[in-house]
């Protein structure tokens, strides 16, 4: 198992009132799975993704990632895990503006083990070429189409060779053709052994996944 959640809960405290966002979730995700999480807004799917991505800590329960119990780790230790084990893909791409595609992809390498400038460039270039952006290395995000931007973001997620990719509505800002291209790319990555977890509310996008879980009111149905 790559991921094992046991009795994970997350409660937000607003004033005197506790608002439960996740209620005692048990979930196991095997290595190499392609999973889609669906649910209405407010169902807790984003909260779950943030917990899986180590951007947030659960209020209760245990989270085991790649054999390591991580729900009580320090902020620095979580940053380290995000850098090595997780790649993020966002709906709005979150590329740095006025920064070339190459530099955007290099970004996670700055927070990992030391690499020379040329080694960083080589790694990022290889990935971009592999994703069909070999002629766009020095373009800024504003000079790229939505689909190209999302592929740059995926290259950035892959550059540290993590076992897990988390995607939050990865096709939400794309036209259907670009969306299909991204899904094809996801299948390719998944075939190469990367575990994919994707949050979406579009059923046909979720249909690309091997397993779909539905959430409602902070619980998995």
């Amino acid at each position: 198992m790559l991921i094992r959640l046991q009795q994970i809960s997350k409660t937000y405290r607003v004033g005197e009132i506790d608002i439960p966002a996740l209620r005692a979730i048990d979930l196991e995700i095997a290595r190499g799975e392609f999973l889609a999480i669906m649910g209405a807004s407010g169902s807790g799917k984003s909260t779950l993704l943030n917990l899986l991505g180590c951007l947030d800590r659960p209020t209760g329960g245990t989270y085991e990632l790649d054999g390591q119990e991580i729900s009580r780790l320090s902020g620095d230790a979580l940053a380290h895990i995000r850098n090595r084990k997780i790649g993020f893909v966002f709906q709005n791409f979150n590329l740095l503006t006025r920064t070339t595609a190459l530099e955007n992809v290099e970004l996670p390498l700055y927070y990992g083990p030391w690499l020379s400038t040329s080694a960083k460039q080589k790694k990022a270039t290889e990935l971009l070429v592999r994703l069909g952006l070999g002629d766009r290395l020095h373009h800024h995000p504003s000079q790229l189409s939505g689909g190209q931007q999302q592929r740059v973001a995926i290259a950035r997620a892959l550059v540290n060779e993590p076992p897990l990719i988390l995607a939050d509505e990865p096709t939400g800002n794309l036209d259907s053709r670009s969306g299909d291209e991204i899904m094809a790319l996801f299948h390719e990555l998944n075939a190469a052994g990367i575990t994919l977890i994707m949050v979406t509310h579009e059923p046909d996008i979720a249909g690309h996944a091997h397993r779909i879980i539905h959430m409602k009111d902070g619980a998995v149905l």
Binding site: N94, Y111, R156
Partner: peptide
């Protein structure tokens, strides 16, 4: 936020 997501620590 993005830098934090890709592994920047607070001190970075």
């Amino acid at each position: 936020g993005l830098r934090m997501a890709v592994g920047a620590r607070r001190r970075d």
